[in-house]
Design a protein around this nucleic acid. Structure first.
Lengths: 73, 73
DNA sequence: ACATTATGTAATATATTTCTTACATACATA
DNA sequence: TATGTATGTAAGAAATATATTACATAATGT
């Protein structure tokens, strides 16, 4: 397989949390249905989530997926 | 953790391939940088891809990610 | 000083995605 | 009939995402 450069994907979760009335990481994790560790890892860009998780996060903020995650290339 | 129902995510890859001049699965796999099996599995909804792969597929068609993948609910 | 809440780190286990390889089938066409 | 192309299935390995548990720290309020 042709090794393509890894896409850099960033998200605005941290910003959106605080826009949303300072929603805590634990509360977001709760709504999304994942553990707090997963939210922490996402905010820190430790890995790129599954598409399903990305959709859930967007839903939790009432946003489109493209408003939460973007890839810079 | 609260077991949330799995989101049903569907995509328009198959349609987009043929819109894009009948691009073959192999050609798409090539552009996206994955194997043909991955494209087959995606088209068949076998699993939901990583967000990175989703972005790559969208890019391959010159579309927004929301135009290729959608979640019902 | 103590308890609580929010965030963070880290190690290990489990689940899911993606790769690799091999083979099957249908279709076109020389 | 033989050959090439596009699609499909399947099994196991490898990579990556997510869960689980435990503990650390800073800030806040009593």
């Amino acid at each position: 397989m042709s090794k393509m450069p890894k896409l850099k994907i960033d998200n605005s979760i941290r910003a959106l949390r605080f826009e949303a009335g300072e929603m805590t990481q634990a509360e977001l994790a709760n709504r999304v249905g994942v553990t707090r560790q997963t939210i922490i890892a996402l905010e820190q860009g430790k890995y790129s989530p599954s598409l399903e998780l990305a959709f859930r996060v967007a839903q939790a903020f009432g946003k489109e997926i493209g408003d939460v995650f973007s890839c810079s290339v």
